[in-house]
Simulated scan of single mutants.
Amino acid sequence: MQVGINLLCLSGFIEAQHLVRIRRLKALGYDGVEIPVLRGDVEHYTWLGRQLDEIGLRRCCTAVIPSPDASPVSSDPQIRQAGEKHLDWALDCAIALGAESLGGPLHAPIGHFTGSGPTESELSYGAEAHNRLATRAEANGIYISLEHLNRFETYFLNTMDQARAYVDRVDHPALRIMYDTFHANIEEQSQPRAIATLGKSMGVLHISENDRGIPGRGHIDFSQVFDAVRTTGFDGWVTLEAFGAGLPELAAATRVWRPLFPDFETLFAESLGFIRAGWQAAA
Rank of each mutant, 00 (worst) to 15 (best):
P36V: 09
V37D: 01
L38Y: 15
R39A: 15
D41A: 08
V42S: 00
V42N: 00
H44V: 03
Y45D: 00
Y45A: 01
Y45F: 15
T46Q: 08
L48F: 04
L48Q: 04
G49R: 03
R50T: 11
R50E: 13
R50D: 12
Q51C: 13
D53C: 10
E54S: 12
I55Y: 04
I55H: 03
G56L: 15
L57K: 07
L57S: 04
R59S: 11
C60R: 11
C60G: 09
C61H: 02
T62C: 09
A63P: 06
P66G: 03
P66Y: 02
D69Y: 10
S71L: 08
S71T: 14
P72C: 06
P72D: 05
V73D: 08
V73I: 15
S74F: 09
S75H: 12
R80A: 12
Q81E: 15
G83K: 08
G83S: 11
K85H: 14
K85P: 10
L87N: 07
D88Q: 15
D88N: 13
D88S: 15
W89N: 09
D92Q: 14
C93T: 10
C93A: 14
C93N: 13
I95E: 09
A96W: 06
A96L: 08
A96H: 07
L97V: 13
E100K: 13
L102M: 12
L102I: 05
L102D: 00
G103S: 09
G104N: 08
A108F: 08
A108L: 07
P109S: 08
G111N: 09
G111T: 10
G115F: 06
P118K: 01
T119S: 15
T119A: 01
E122P: 08
G126R: 00
G126C: 02
A127T: 04
E128G: 02
E128W: 01
N131C: 14
R132Y: 01
L133H: 00
L133M: 00
A134I: 00
A137Q: 01
A137I: 01
A139K: 15
G141H: 06
L146Y: 01
N150K: 04
N150A: 03
R151M: 10
R151A: 14
F152P: 05
F152L: 09
F152D: 06
E153F: 05
E153N: 03
Y155D: 08
L157I: 08
T159W: 06
T159K: 03
M160V: 09
Q162L: 10
A163I: 12
